[in-house]
Design a protein around this nucleic acid. Structure first.
Length: 699
DNA sequence: CCATAATTCTTTTTT
DNA sequence: AGAATTATGG
């Protein structure tokens, strides 16, 4: 029997209501995951079969966590429940119905990089200048069309402008190419199941019968395709439970529409709505800080999360000299926490962009702090790893032209552009894949290598297959012969890749190449394939959603970084950044640090960013400034030679200056008493006391 | 065809 | 800053 002693009334109600549509509006830390997992356990307890439940999450990490927690409640029955991300659920549907959609069994999923290179290729084919319209722009447009369920034919109906007509052409050709390659992209994993259900109502009916109970987490992040997909499957029994929080909607760049959560009550007239507003996670201080920030959003349903928890420690604010000082300060405070007995798994450092992880990583390495970086795809992005994966994909799906092109001349086999262009033309004319078009020359030798490996691959495990590929392809030999430090490191990475397949095989028993390829495409994060316990976590704020830690460091709290300067011009985007800030703050249970840097070198240029506007929105009682206590004095000396600031100067019009609060600006006019400085949009021109100490000349 | 040099591009957040 | 693409010379 399920024990509900530790549940409040609302939570109990949410767990036990299983008759019809249910909307749970759950604030941060209100026990949402606890409710969802217990709900699943309660369903099973009441006699519902594990196969009748479908639970959908947004990230792989969230689904992994849900599986674990359900396992803790009901044991190994948890393995039989369909708990997955939208994309992997879509993949499952495709795997079960590929023939109906005219795919072959061994279709492959292409990742974002691959789809970009397909688009570039098409643009060359149809003579579109990449300087006039960027491939990325086209890709984003195609992707958002797909996520709004606009297919290439529908798109052409509305294509008017020059750009749209180009996109239309590329879109059509892109779909054709993927089809010939027997491959699908990420978006297809959502779009194709919907297409299937529309064309074959009987198939849809079978899914409706199968999944009688549907649970969807983070409903505010669903886009049109995801929304339609769940609506279709739940249409018969309407036992659909969605959980969400408008204040945590942070994926609109991916087409997410938090209106979906409001539409829920329209779609299901008899929907039950339960609000979970008591926070059990954070100290009162942290919650007050979060509330004081989010209340600045205009487009928002007012609600207030409350808690009974302790006041706890104040938030510590530290403004560092530069990004290295920032990282060192964090390292130092992390070390302090660790020596006070805080577990490394209970500490997280979060930031707005992945690029910020580098400096932090260097500092952690230097200070011997064990860490793991979530969501940095740098391992899979390495050339040698991509090459290896392309070999594997090609072995599995010979029609995968993208992978073939990647490796046909790796290592160098004397197959150049000319040969490849000829092959492409031949494939194009005959409407076949490049692999099938090969029948002579050096490229035939390549084809024979693949065929050779194919003969052996069925009898060996994955790890051995990788060795076989490295040997037969000549990749290993070429790298050994190169005899450089770089080649050695590439070899090391390839060995490291084997540890991933080994882990896989140990975890899953025997697994197929098919399963492996699907998983590394959908879970393209090394850390999620490894058991890396006892480490401090570094990740983006987006990746942190749904997680909680005793100690949280938010780094890079600067205007321009967070909120991102790309969001400055659009109120809606600023509001989304603010929701992200709300998410970031509410990750912390006990202690929150907010850190930023006066001077930061990012993407190769130096900038002097003012502190994030969100910091000033935090209730003053919640936060204390620790910048004066430069624990990192050593760095002050180290960085002195790099000091760019000059004081006591006679300013003149046109001088580039740095102002403590607003950052970089230009002196536009001055008199004996005042000076006027222009700052980038949206700050504008501000008036200051002349030669005020907060203004410095930029060298 | 290949290696290297020079130049240009990109740089939010994720499946 | 670093990656990616293009130009150049062998």
């Amino acid at each position: 029997m399920i024990n509900l002693d530790n549940f409040n009334d609302k939570q109990k109600e949410a767990v036990l209501y299983n008759d019809g549509p249910l909307l749970i509006l759950a604030g941060a830390g209100s026990g949402k995951t606890k409710v969802l997992t217990t709900k699943v356990a309660a369903l099973i307890d009441s006699g519902i079969d594990t196969s009748e439940i479908l639970a959908i999450t947004f990230t792989n990490k969230a689904s992994k966590e849900m599986k674990e927690r359900i396992y803790n409640l009901i044991g190994s029955d948890a393995y039989y429940i369909q708990i997955s991300t939208f994309h992997s659920f879509g993949l499952k549907i495709l795997k079960d119905n590929y023939e109906l959609l005219n795919y072959k069994k061994n279709f492959t999923i292409i990742d974002s990089d691959d789809s970009l290179s397909v688009i570039k290729k098409i643009m060359k084919e149809i003579n579109v200048d990449q300087k006039m319209i960027s491939p990325r722009y086209i890709k984003d447009n195609i992707s958002s069309a797909k996520n709004s369920l606009v297919d290439e034919f529908e798109y052409s109906k509305y294509a008017n402008t020059d750009n749209e007509i180009i996109i239309e052409k590329v879109y059509k050709r892109y779909q054709e190419k993927l089809k010939i390659n027997n491959s699908v992209d990420f978006d297809d994993l959502l779009v194709l199941p919907i297409k299937l259900f529309k064309e074959y109502p009987s198939v849809l009916k079978a899914y409706q019968e199968r999944y009688k109970y549907i649970l969807i987490d983070e409903y505010q992040d669903t886009n049109e395709a995801q929304y339609v997909l769940t609506k279709m499957i739940s249409a018969k029994y309407k036992n659909i439970c969605v959980v969400g929080d408008n204040d945590q909607s942070i994926y609109s760049f991916r087409g997410a529409n938090y209106q979906n959560i409001l539409n829920f009550e329209k779609d299901y007239k008899d929907a039950k709505v339960i609000m979970l507003e008591q926070n059990y996670r954070s100290t009162k201080t942290i919650l007050d800080a979060a509330n004081s920030v989010i209340k600045n959003n205009k487009y928002r349903k007012d609600k207030k999360l409350w808690c009974d928890n302790n006041v706890g420690e104040k938030i510590t604010y530290y403004r560092a000299l530069n990004e290295r000082d920032e990282a060192d300060y964090i390292s130092l405070e992390v070390e302090k926490a660790l020596s006070n007995g805080v577990l490394p798994t209970q500490i997280a450092v979060i930031y707005r962009t992945n690029a910020q992880s580098r400096t932090l990583e260097e500092s952690f390495l230097k200070n011997n702090i064990p860490y793991k970086i979530i969501g940095s795809f740098y391992f899979y992005n390495r050339k040698e790893i991509k090459d290896l994966i392309s070999y594997l994909k090609l072995l599995y799906n010979n029609n995968d032209d993208v992978s073939l092109m990647r490796v046909i001349n790796v290592p160098k086999r004397g197959i150049g552009i000319k040969t490849i262009t000829n092959l492409e033309n031949k494939a194009e004319i005959n409407n076949i894949s490049i692999y099938d078009a090969i029948d002579s020359g050096k490229e035939l030798i390549f084809k024979n290598i693949i065929e050779d490996i194919k003969k052996e691959m069925d009898n060996i495990n994955l790890t051995k297959l990788i060795d076989l590929v490295l040997d037969k392809s000549g990749m290993r030999e070429a790298l050994i012969n190169e005899n450089t430090i770089e080649a050695d490191s590439r070899l090391e990475n390839l060995e490291e890749f084997k540890s991933i397949t080994k882990n896989f095989e140990e975890r899953e028993g025997i697994i197929s190449l098919e399963d492996f390829l699907n998983e590394i495409t959908l879970v393209s994060d090394v850390e999620e394939h490894k058991d890396s316990k006892d480490r401090v976590t570094l990740m983006t704020m987006h990746a942190a959603k749904g997680l909680e830690f005793d100690y949280v460091f938010i780094s890079g709290m600067e205007d321009g970084i967070f909120p991102s300067n790309k969001s400055f011009y659009d109120e809606q985007e600023i509001e989304e950044e603010r929701r992200l800030c709300y998410v970031a703050i509410t990750r912390a249970k006990k202690k929150l640090y907010i850190v930023n840097a006066r001077k930061r070198r990012l993407y190769g240029i130096d900038s002097n960013n003012p502190p994030s506007r969100f910091i000033s929105e935090i209730d003053k009682n919640c936060i204390e400034n620790n910048s004066g206590n430069a624990v990192t004095k050593i760095n002050v000396y180290k960085d002195r030679e790099e000091e760019d600031f000059v004081t006591d100067i006679n300013f003149k019009v046109g001088d580039k200056v740095i102002q403590d609060k607003y950052g970089n600006g230009i002196v536009v006019s001055l008199n004996d008493e005042f000076m006027f400085i222009a700052f980038p949009f949206p700050i504008g021109i501000k008036k200051f006391v002349k030669n005020h100490k907060s203004i410095k000349l930029e060298k």
